[in-house]
């Protein structure tokens, strides 16, 4: 009897320790990028937007943490806005909200840029838009962290239920399972709808896709301004004149000049 009880306690504690250790984000190592960041900020303050843009853009690495990417994307959006490139600003701000969705200033900038570009507000203010906004608030990393914490909490509650019994542990376990199911569902939806190489149409009047990567071959698919698509192929070196990208939209696939989209 005593051996079983100790076994249960030991198992629960070990599981809790393992789970909480998994839930703790791993700290990355600081890089030399901080110096470039400071230089970019100084250039921006000095009004040298071109230099600031190059430096911020150079730091924008896929391996950065979400919060760092959000900072860089927002700053790039500000640079675009200051240069009256409102569609580019909309693209940068939209990308930043995907990384950090609870930044009120970021949403303010996004709505202002959309208004300046003549687009409808990102948050229409109706019930559906509010619900979508609410669901977009936690990041995927936060959802994972919350999921692991909930698993640990569930282990603790189940342990109490095994050893002590009673109604309260059962109710608590039910609530934790419910919250965990919601977290997992949201995480799964987020995972399924995430794009590997997202891009936004920055042509002010929208653009028509081509069936081949050259002019004169319309594919009959029109993309709206600020429509988010996924880049699935590329012709020519990125950033060079004449480069084309193949994108996947809700209506289908097609090519368009790289200058008509902004990818992040």
């Amino acid at each position: 009897m005593n051996a079983t009880r100790w076994f249960a306690w030991a198992t629960g504690l070990a599981l809790l320790l393992v789970l909480t250790s998994w839930a703790t984000p791993t700290m990355g190592s600081a890089s030399a990028g901080s110096a470039d960041f400071e230089s970019a900020v100084e250039a921006y303050r000095a009004g040298d937007l071109a230099t600031a843009e190059v430096l911020f853009d150079g730091l924008l690495d896929a391996g950065l943490s979400a919060s760092d990417r959000a900072i860089l994307l927002r700053n790039l959006g500000n640079i675009a806005y200051r240069q009256d490139e409102f569609m580019d600003a909309v693209a940068y701000y939209t990308a930043a909200t995907r990384e950090e969705s609870r930044d009120g200033d970021l949403w303010h900038n996004l709505e202002l840029a959309r208004a300046s570009a003549g687009l409808e507000p990102a948050d229409a203010g109706d019930l559906a838009a509010t619900a979508a906004h609410l669901f977009s608030l936690p990041t995927a990393a936060e959802l994972r962290t919350a999921g692991w914490l909930l698993v640990g909490l569930l282990a603790l509650v189940l342990l109490v239920e095994v050893l002590r019994g009673g109604t309260s542990p059962k109710v608590a376990a039910g609530l934790v399972v419910f919250a965990l199911a919601g977290d997992l569902a949201l995480l799964q939806v987020r995972s399924m709808t995430a794009l590997e190489a997202p891009a936004m149409v920055v042509a002010a009047d929208g653009v028509e896709l081509s069936s081949e990567p050259r002019p004169g071959y319309p594919a009959g698919i029109d993309l709206e301004p600020a429509e988010v698509v996924e880049v699935i192929d590329r012709l020519g070196q990125q950033g060079q004149a004449g480069a084309w990208v193949k994108v996947q939209s809700a209506e289908g696939q097609g090519w368009l000049p790289e200058s008509e989209v902004l990818s992040w």
């Binding site: 600081a30 919060s67 990417r69």
Partner: peptide, 12 residues
């Protein structure tokens, strides 16, 4: 801005 590499897996 930390410049630290993130741990989030690439989206699938």
């Amino acid at each position: 801005f930390s410049g630290a590499l993130g741990v989030a897996p690439p989206p699938v």
